[in-house]
């Protein structure tokens, strides 16, 4: 008998308890009041800022110059961008900037020390976000791999303000996650942190020390 058969056999031989219906989780989340996009964006911003992230409100036209400005302020030199993404192309077409763009084109295994040691910051798009916890949702893929949001010390995230869900449950159900999960889905709620030394909060434990959200509003320019 294999370990699998033994374990399943013991579980199946155990006395049945009272039958338990499938819990109605959706009903619980349905009780939260419906908010408009602007309110969700405000709540998202307040919550992720409370977790030590920076949020800059901008729009689809202005974010590249804003990003370059912030990068210069922070003294960042090398920015990792995705391979063949729209945001990488937009940045590349910006006139006269000092930021060196590095494209993530090769498997991480072939340039790992470069990735770990010589990249100052990275830019990725967020798929969507969550208002209730101030969280960004990323589905890393071939063009924006998962280490972009983890290894560089500063992470810029481009977020469309129209894509902010009320909570994680709304994100999962509205985007129908359960039908086809990606190899890796991430929900990120601030820069990396730890309180393992005497409950004292410190940022930049293993992941990014800084998380900078470029919150793009549609319609009228905000800046």
């Amino acid at each position: 008998m294999s370990a699998r058969e033994n374990i399943l056999g013991r579980l199946r031989r155990a006395p049945a308890g009272a039958p338990v219906p499938l819990p109605d989780v959706a009903a619980w989340f349905a009780t939260t009041p419906v908010e408009d996009i602007a309110t969700r964006a405000t709540r998202f911003k307040a919550n992720i800022e409370a977790a030590h992230a920076e949020v800059h409100e901008t729009n689809a036209a202005d974010w590249p110059s804003l990003l370059l400005e912030i990068a210069v302020q922070k003294g960042l030199g090398r920015l990792l961008v995705g391979h063949g993404t729209a945001q990488a192309e937009v940045l590349r077409s910006q006139p006269q900037h000092q930021l060196k763009l590095v494209s993530y084109e090769q498997p991480a295994a072939t340039w790992r020390s470069e990735l770990f040691e010589n990249i100052d910051c990275a830019l990725t798009a967020a798929r969507s976000a969550i208002a209730s916890t101030g969280s960004l949702i990323l589905w890393p893929d071939a063009s924006e791999p998962r280490l972009m949001s983890l290894v560089p010390p500063v992470h810029f995230v481009l977020l469309d303000a129209a894509n902010i869900h009320a909570d994680l449950h709304a994100a999962m159900t509205n985007e129908r996650w359960a039908e086809a999960m990606p190899t890796n889905a991430l929900v990120i709620s601030g820069p990396s942190k730890t309180a393992d030394i005497q409950q004292t909060l410190a940022y930049g434990a293993h992941g990014p020390r800084e998380l900078i959200v470029l919150l793009c509003h549609r319609g009228a320019k905000s800046s």
Binding site: G134, A142, R146, T183, N184, A195
Partner: peptide, 24 residues
């Protein structure tokens, strides 16, 4: 657990990297 509203990272893993993925 720690009195925080949410953890910094929620990591959903549903497979090894696909052939075209550059890490994982």
């Amino acid at each position: 657990a720690t009195g925080q509203a949410v953890e910094t990272y929620q990591n959903f893993i549903s497979g090894p990297r696909k052939p075209d993925e550059l890490d994982g």
